[in-house]
Simulated scan of single mutants.
Amino acid sequence: MNGPTESVPDGRYPRPGAEAPLVVFDFDHTLYDGDSGSHLFAWLIKRRRWRTLLALLIAPLFAPLIAFLPTRRFGVSGFVWAGSVGTHRTGGFNAAIDLYVVTHAEKIRDRLLPIALDVLHGHRERGDRVVIATGAPPELARAILAFVAHEDVPVIGTLVGPRFGGIGALRHCHNQMKMTMLREAGFGEPIAMAYSDSSADLPLLLAAQRPVVVNPKAGRVPMFRRVLPAGTPILNWGCADRAGDPV
């Protein structure tokens, strides 16, 4: 599922109107304690010994690329490919994601942040338009929210597709590209509120009328205070190894 998932009307919440405030949530380290994509890719790679060996062989080339914004997509693509080589269709990759979520539901549930889900519930109860914009594959965030958290909201994520006998990232939902993909999916400005942990989401946070930084790395806090509007909340929603004012 490579585009935004369509939300199904949920009787628990009012249907948002076209003029309802738009609220954007990042996923990793915002709703989920950790990097959901890394957890998925590690599982995919470890399922077969030969894939583990393949990942070890390519690690010296691809792992360093993940540390730098301009090359991150290429680094991530290498490990997505190692975990999916032999899978020739996106549908097969999405089926593997769904299997991962079903078989790891308890561990995943423990990583979902209760405070974050309460905030998400609150926006939906008020009738806001809520969308998830994540660097993870959209099927992963969708499956976690639907199967584990019982939330059905639109998801924008990294587009994946067939590449060199496996699956690779075709369009990374990251940094300025996240804004582009939100607009293309019909979630353009104005953005009423945005929640994210990441400095890579500065374009999103700066576009929001009310940005909220959650669970940032401690070393990034001074930068957020410098570039975001005065008084921007910098909160910790339950990530023990992250900074922010406790809630």
Rank of each mutant, 00 (worst) to 15 (best):
T134K: 06
F41R: 11
F224T: 07
K178I: 12
H88G: 01
R47W: 00
P162M: 11
Y13F: 15
L61M: 09
I58N: 00
L140T: 01
H29L: 12
A207N: 04
L56M: 15
T232M: 03
L140Q: 03
F93G: 00
I144N: 01
F147S: 13
P211G: 10
H104I: 11
L205G: 02
R242V: 06
A192Q: 10
D26T: 04
W237S: 11
V80T: 15
P114Y: 06
R89L: 01
R89F: 06
A143L: 04
A96Q: 11
P233M: 04
L170K: 04
T52F: 13
L40P: 03
N236F: 08
R72A: 15
H123G: 08
T30M: 05
D245M: 10
K178F: 03
G92P: 08
Y32E: 01
R12Q: 07
V212S: 01
L44D: 10
L120F: 11
D98A: 12
L206Q: 10
G78S: 09
G168W: 08
R89P: 07
R210W: 05
G92A: 05
R142F: 04
S7E: 15
G83T: 05
G75W: 09
G127F: 04
P229K: 05
G127T: 01
A55F: 14
L57K: 08
H29A: 05
L44H: 04
H172V: 06
V23K: 02
W237A: 14
G17V: 00
H123A: 12
E184K: 15
